[in-house]
Nucleic acid binder design. Structure first.
Length: 440
RNA sequence: GCCGCCAUCGUCUAGUGGCCUAGGACAUCGGAUUCUCAUUCCGAAAACCGCGGGUUCAAAUCCCGCUGGCGGUGCCA
């Protein structure tokens, strides 16, 4: 048998869409599984819908995801090829020219049948449900129908893996292959991916391109894993699979027929799982690179947080973030002086105690504490203070937390303070007290 | 309208005639641990397997009809 060749064939009408990830992934997996070849084809035959930068975004996204492809075909660069083939059909009498376009002539009677790889379903279309269609537009560019048939024949694509929205036009394609006298490839029409309103996932559902997910701090492994499972369960029924493991287990025949709803909540959960599974040193690097990318290169190694600083915080935030972007709100108080919203102090239950008085006591205790501050002593000191004041220890810790960070939620207090440093901690509390003597 | 695809908890799914009084995961809700938040650990609720007919000793699983959802119906892809 010939080598298995698959391809991902998006049209550059926008940034690479998250739904396209699954199509690309399955095609990639089929190739890998069969030691075949996976390539990319840019379907840019509609000049009106062409979006500048889209091709680059698709390539970048594929690379970022780790879906390596060999071979790149750009349809607009081989216009003449399609023209030649369109003419050939005209010469054969199977197509005709009208108003500058070349139309495929649908035979009078009969039907097309084919077995789709997905769900091994048999699909039958009557010719009379089909109308003549354009192969070559009057601007000289091919339509999808022609380009698909010509390219996938030349590229020896088999199976053709594409979204189910193509299913209704498959008879056109089969007829065209036959008109040329070429072998018809096998088709795998992947079920649609739906938005929460159950209509085809699109920009209306929050327009999520791969690059946006990347910017949001999603990991490629998590995206791949989640998308793979939208319509497929590995025979092993494992929950987490690497690309290699997927390639081993994947069989296009196991892909479901029913459409699936894209659920970002589950993707986020999975991303969190991947973050937790990542080695600290690797996570440190990922966060560092992520922050640099976010700042579009304006972040230099001298800016905060530095790689060393991130390294110290990683163990504290690893179990607290679902996305790399969560790192920022959770830790920025460590590198920047906090802005205080006095409202948050009201959420600390200190009975009728005066916050300023309590903070004064905190400062006093901290100054008494032997340096370097030790975790046990720190804790004991403030538990004692809480007892003296007759309030829960948690309230005291919470007050210190807010005083130091301006936030109700932070990584563990003492560890955060250690990163902040003793002087900075004291300075922050003192300046808070002096800045807002009344309000507190 | 016409053509086509699909149909198990809110979501992703297991399930290919008896192991199913339908299992898992996310989300949700309780509870335990805890200085906040998270993590982790327990537990609960959640699908009369879209509806109606068959076939069979036996159906979520096979067949038919219906309904519903979605897709296509472009010199877009």
């Amino acid at each position: 048998m010939d080598k298995v060749k698959t391809r991902f064939a998006p049209s550059p009408t926008g940034m690479m869409h998250i739904g396209g990830v699954r199509t690309a992934l399955y095609a990639y997996l089929v190739a890998r599984k069969n030691s075949g070849i996976f390539s990319l084809r840019i379907e840019d035959t509609d000049r009106n819908r062409f979006v500048e930068g889209a091709t680059e975004d698709i390539i970048d996204s594929l690379k970022w995801l780790g879906l390596d492809f060999e071979g790149l075909v750009i349809q607009s660069e081989r216009k003449e090829l399609y023209q030649k083939y369109a003419r050939e059909l005209v010469d054969k009498g199977m197509a005709y020219e009208q108003e500058g376009a070349i139309w495929f002539k649908i035979p009078k009677d009969g039907k097309v049948e084919f077995n789709d790889l997905i769900g091994s379903r048999k699909v039958v279309f009557d010719f009379n449900s089909q109308k003549d269609f354009v192969l070559l537009k009057s601007d000289g560019f091919p339509t999808y129908h022609l380009a698909h048939v010509v390219d996938d024949h030349i590229m020896e694509t088999n199976p053709v893996i594409r979204a189910e929205e193509w299913l209704p036009s498959t008879p056109k394609h089969i007829l065209t292959f036959q008109a040329f006298g070429w072998d018809v490839p096998q088709y795998a029409h992947l079920p649609l991916i739906l938005g929460t309103d159950r209509s085809k996932l699109s920009k209306r559902h929050g327009a999520r391109s791969v690059s946006e997910f990347r910017k949001d701090g999603f990991l490629p492994e998590a995206i791949l894993n989640y998308m793979a499972f939208l319509g497929w369960t590995p025979p092993s029924e494992k929950e987490f699979l690497t690309l290699d493991e997927m390639a081993k287990e994947f069989d296009i025949k196991d892909v479901h027929v029913a459409p699936g709803v894209f659920d970002i909540t589950k993707l986020e959960w999975m991303n969190g799982e991947y973050i937790r599974k990542t080695q600290n040193s690797k996570l440190k690097t990922q966060i560092y690179q992520y922050l640099r990318e976010l700042s579009e290169g304006t972040l230099t190694p001298q800016d905060h947080p530095t790689e060393e600083e991130i390294e110290k915080v990683v163990p504290l935030i690893k179990e607290r973030i679902k996305k790399l972007s969560d790192f920022i709100p959770l830790t920025d108080f460590l590198w920047e002086k906090p802005e205080y919203d006095l409202e948050v102090f009201k959420k600390i239950k200190l009975d009728n105690l005066d916050i300023k008085d309590v903070l004064d006591k905190v400062v006093y205790k901290l100054e008494e504490l032997k340096k370097p501050w030790k975790s046990e002593e720190f804790e004991k000191t403030f538990r004692n203070l809480a007892e003296e004041l007759g309030v829960p220890a948690g309230s005291i810790f919470q007050l210190i937390r807010v005083a130091v960070s301006g936030q109700l939620v932070t990584p563990p207090l003492f560890e955060s303070i250690q990163i902040l440093g003793e002087e900075e901690t004291l300075a922050r509390i003192k300046s808070l007290v002096s800045k807002y003597p009344r309000l507190l």
